[in-house]
């Protein structure tokens, strides 16, 4: 150091450690463990804070999920929806058949004994046949 700083040089030469300051016994030795405990506690409280922030959103998501499950599983909603879907699908099938076969070919198909097994395997939704009598069906099949 510069010669003009005689006193400062003298103090430095005395080589007193840490300018007269000291620490409680074992303070520095135990500091890592204390600090890691603080950090772990901080991490846990951060995780709790995140849960607290997300909680309302998670609750809302859970409510919507329950509503969706109830909607798709309750018979009231399911029956009307399924019947509507079944009618649409039958209409499409009949349209396709009528475009590929004429009436005589269809009648031959139905009356042919070899085709009985085909018609037995068709699962017809009973809801579709509601209100239709055997006479109606006979009329439809013969003419």
């Amino acid at each position: 150091m510069n010669e003009e700083f005689k006193i400062l040089n003298h103090i430095k030469d005395q080589n007193k450690s840490n300018a007269g300051f000291n620490v409680p016994d074992g303070y520095l030795e135990s500091f890592e463990d204390k600090m890691m405990d603080i950090i772990n506690a901080e991490e846990q409280s951060l995780a709790k804070k995140i849960v607290l922030v997300l909680k309302p959103w998670l609750s809302m998501a859970a409510i919507f999920t329950v509503i969706a499950i109830v909607y798709y599983n309750t018979p009231y909603f399911k029956t009307s929806q399924t019947v509507a879907d079944a009618s649409i699908s039958n209409e499409i099938t009949l349209d396709l058949l009528s475009s590929d076969f004429d009436e005589l070919e269809l009648m031959d198909m139905i009356t042919d004994e070899n085709n009985t097994s085909i018609f037995e395997n068709i699962n017809t939704d009973p809801a579709l046949l509601e209100g239709i009598t055997y006479e109606d069906i006979e009329g439809l099949v013969i003419f």
């Binding site: 103090i11 005395q14 007193k16 300018a19 007269g20 300051f21 000291n22 620490v23 409680p24």
Partner: peptide
């Protein structure tokens, strides 16, 4: 936790 002498003070 300070035990400095007069000059340190």
């Amino acid at each position: 936790y300070f035990d400095g002498d007069e000059i340190q003070i």
